[in-house]
């Protein structure tokens, strides 16, 4: 029975290889056919009329970006605020409004408050944006909408799904950062062209903060109450006490280390460094390394959890 099946499978396989070949997988299908005839353990693909085929990993991740984009084209208006307006609003309220009460002094490096706070607000906004996009929307893919399960029923794998999600956040946060940079330019918040470098720094910090949240989302099975706690106990304090609005030197020394382990602080130091100067090469490398390690480590973790949840 099994033997007969294999033989006829092989026959139909070679018969239809031509059709499959035209859609683009000539090489692999061809070799499969021949090895199938010789080795008993090798795969013997049964004849196909299906139009489906496997795409490369990067392409698969990009297809996910395409799906996000389809969604975004319909709903971009409702995300205008969090991605575009919020950081600008903060810049207006804190940089200009609150800043009008601040005298330029040693705390701000002798600069006007708006210059001091503008690069840090970009980082803070990017981080918040990325964390928001990595929490409930990702959990929804697993739990409410469950579209992640639909995706992994196709040739796209869980890892590629995660990759697409990360690329999408890079793009979205990137666009938001560019918008912010341009608006801040109108406010006269930039001192030099170093502002251009603040955008990639903001995106990098955002990814380093967003990907761990994706890992958390992949291990969340309830309604996501823990995100509310994360926003309040982790994200808000991180933004408030990471040197965004005032130097961390004002934080009592005993708890200042909390700022040092905050990725927002590392991002902020880098962002201020490229616009306002005063950051040495080694410290800069250190900040980059911190963010890189955090992003890499959490991406590996997230990948593991994505597989654990989607392939059971």
């Amino acid at each position: 029975m099994a033997n007969g099946g294999t033989a006829s499978g092989g026959a139909t396989g070679s018969g239809t290889t031509g059709t499959t070949g035209t859609t683009g997988t000539t090489g692999t299908t061809g070799t499969t056919g021949t090895t199938g005839a010789t080795g008993a353990t090798a795969r013997v693909e049964i004849g196909s009329r299906s139009a489906g085929r496997v795409v490369g990993s990067w392409r698969a991740a990009w297809l996910r970006v395409e799906a996000h984009w389809t969604w975004y084209r319909r709903y971009w208006r409702s995300s205008l605020y969090s991605s575009g307006l919020q950081p600008v609003l903060f810049l207006a309220a804190m940089g200009l409004g609150f800043g009008s009460q601040v005298e330029a002094g040693p705390a701000t490096g002798g600069l006007a408050y708006v210059h001091y706070v503008a690069p840090a607000l970009l980082v803070a906004g990017a981080v918040q944006n990325a964390i928001g996009e990595s929490s409930y929307p990702v959990l929804s893919g697993f739990k409410w909408q469950q579209d992640y399960y639909a995706v992994t029923a196709t040739p796209v794998t869980a890892g590629q799904l995660l990759g697409g999600q990360i690329i999408w956040i890079v793009l979205r946060v990137g666009i938001a950062c560019v918008v912010y940079t341009l608006v801040a330019l109108l406010f006269g918040a930039w001192l030099n062209a170093g502002a251009l470098l603040v955008v990639p720094i903001g995106v990098f910090a955002a990814v380093a903060c967003g990907v761990p949240i994706m890992a958390v989302a992949a291990t969340t099975y309830n309604e996501g109450e823990r995100f509310a706690a994360i926003f309040r106990f982790l994200v808000m304090p991180m933004i408030l006490f990471s040197g965004t609005f005032f130097p961390i030197e004002q934080i009592p020394a005993a708890v200042r280390w909390l700022a040092w382990i905050s990725p927002v602080w590392h991002g902020t130091e880098l962002a201020r460094g490229v616009t306002l100067g005063g950051l040495g090469g080694w410290p800069a490398l250190g900040h980059l390394a911190f963010l890189g390690v955090l992003a890499g480590f959490s991406a590996a973790l997230a990948r593991r959890y994505f597989y654990r949840r989607l392939v059971v």
Binding site: E45, R74, Y75, Q145, A150, A153, P155
Partner: peptide
């Protein structure tokens, strides 16, 4: 004719799957 552990994506490329729960993108 293939082993899902090895050729998962290649198999899925040619399958149609209707899961118990509709996993449609409702938005």
């Amino acid at each position: 004719g293939m082993d899902p552990d090895v050729d998962g994506p290649r198999i899925r490329a040619r399958l149609g799957s209707v899961p118990q729960q509709d996993t449609l993108d409702t938005e």
